[in-house]
Computed example of a mutant assay.
Amino acid sequence: MSDLDVLHTVASTRVDHGGPSRSVPFLCEALADQGASVRLVTAVPESNSTDEFILPGAPVDTCTVEETGGLQQALRSPLAFYRALRNEVEQAPPALLHDHGVWLPSNAAAALVAWKEGVPLVVSTRGMLTAWALRHNRWKKRLAWTAYQERVLRQATLFHVTSQEEVDALRELGFDQAAAVIPNGVPLPDGSDGLSASTDEHRALFLSRIHPKKGLPMLIEAWADVAPENWVLELVGPSEGGHRKKLERQVRRAGLEDVIQFSGPVADDEKWDVYRRADLFVLPTHSENFGIVVAEALAAGVPVITTRGTPWNDLEEYGCGWWVEPDVEAIAGALGQATALNDTERAEMGRRGRQLVEEQYSWSGVAEKMVAAYQWVLAGGRPPDYIRRA
């Protein structure tokens, strides 16, 4: 395995930049544990910044490009990112370059380096080509599509996706390259054994970015409809584009200030305690390629409500949650059922969820599949059964 040298690129590993900021460092570590030689090129905050970011530990070799004036400014002029990446490739050409994400100039920089150096390119689309994602900020994405993004995707030797929905989205856009359907993994927290001790007040938790994509207006309306007795709803995460202020106004208009609480972002090493304090986790999202927070909640032993905008049909199959349409009525129905259960019933659902994560979403299993996909790209032969070809 030591001859498998993979260079990963991702725009940022800042905690408040969504799922890839967590999953990419974990993937790099898991690949290294499988014996691959792994490098990561990413941007990090300026040295005097208080922003929290995640980097993989040894033996992953990480090249960090310092942000100057914030990530968006740095990525509008991605010359430093391009130079750092090209230097890495020229010094030690990798067998593969694996780029994560879509729409950012850093993705164009990664594709350009791969093309110039003749290195096969793997692209993780990270749910950014689904119908909802394409509608959000539509005009900016159309400009990016014309400027560079379509050419970047045409260059990919292999796509990495986490659900069949992403494969379908690629085909609808006219891309016929092979796609490896490999879910994200999740680290298993220590000492997680079902829900926290019962109290008179129960807690439902949302933990993710406070962003229009996450469907929180639907959740607030559904909560007002159900009005579960002795329950509070806690919304945890960083606000983007002033979205939290809009939600706070909605909460005030509905008279729910006493039962819906807003919290800021939580440090990565503190999030497991936040999960364990919850009796129920809710992600009312419009669209997710995976939904890492769903896996984390299950790993912490908490049953989950999420929508069919995620690929989490396992919730129903394993009896550890509710998988419903992304609308107010369906979310309210699931809330009514979940909050009507007793503590023992919810705890049993949580234990089944923990077992599901242990069996199917370990990082070691994810890395094994990714290594096999890389080897198929390099050597050919019969593809693994999770490779989808047009």
Rank of each mutant, 00 (worst) to 15 (best):
A372C: 08
L121W: 08
T344E: 07
L134W: 09
D51H: 01
V251A: 05
E248C: 00
Q164F: 12
G264P: 01
A11D: 06
W312V: 11
R203T: 15
E234S: 00
V226I: 11
H211C: 04
S2A: 08
R135G: 10
Y148F: 14
A11P: 04
L216V: 00
E325G: 07
E88A: 11
V251G: 05
V377A: 08
F81A: 12
P238R: 03
N342D: 15
H286V: 09
S12H: 01
T13S: 05
W223Q: 00
R351C: 02
I331Y: 14
E166V: 07
A224N: 03
D168M: 07
G336E: 13
A156D: 06
A332P: 14
Q360I: 04
R276V: 02
L219D: 06
F290W: 13
N313F: 09
Y361L: 03
D176A: 15
E329M: 07
L195D: 03
G333H: 15
L235N: 05
S196D: 09
E359A: 15
R352M: 06
L256R: 12
V324C: 14
W272P: 04
V24G: 10
G242T: 07
A224V: 00
V6F: 07
N87P: 01
S263R: 03
L298I: 06
L170W: 02
L283V: 10
E67T: 13
D200M: 07
L97Y: 05
V324P: 09
W231R: 01
P94W: 01
E229L: 02
P384Y: 10
M349S: 04
G291M: 06
R352T: 07
M218G: 03
W115Q: 15
W323H: 15
Y82G: 14
A372N: 11
R253P: 01
V366N: 04
L153R: 03
A11M: 09
E201P: 03
D269F: 02
H136N: 07
Q250G: 00
E325A: 15
G57D: 10
V44P: 02
W103T: 12
T64P: 01
L121Q: 13
K246Y: 03
L356I: 02
H8A: 02
F26M: 11
P105I: 15
A30T: 15
A267L: 03
P383K: 11
P93I: 06
T146N: 07
H100Y: 03
E201W: 12
L153H: 02
T307W: 11
E46N: 04
E201M: 15
R352V: 06
A204K: 04
N107T: 14
V181S: 12
R209I: 02
W312E: 12
D343H: 14
A197F: 05
I182N: 09
W376K: 13
T199Y: 00
V259R: 14
G237T: 05
D268R: 00
N313I: 11
K141N: 06
L298S: 09
L173Q: 13
L143S: 08
L40K: 07
G333N: 15
S37N: 09
L173V: 12
F262P: 04
L71N: 08
G215R: 04
P187S: 08
V65R: 08
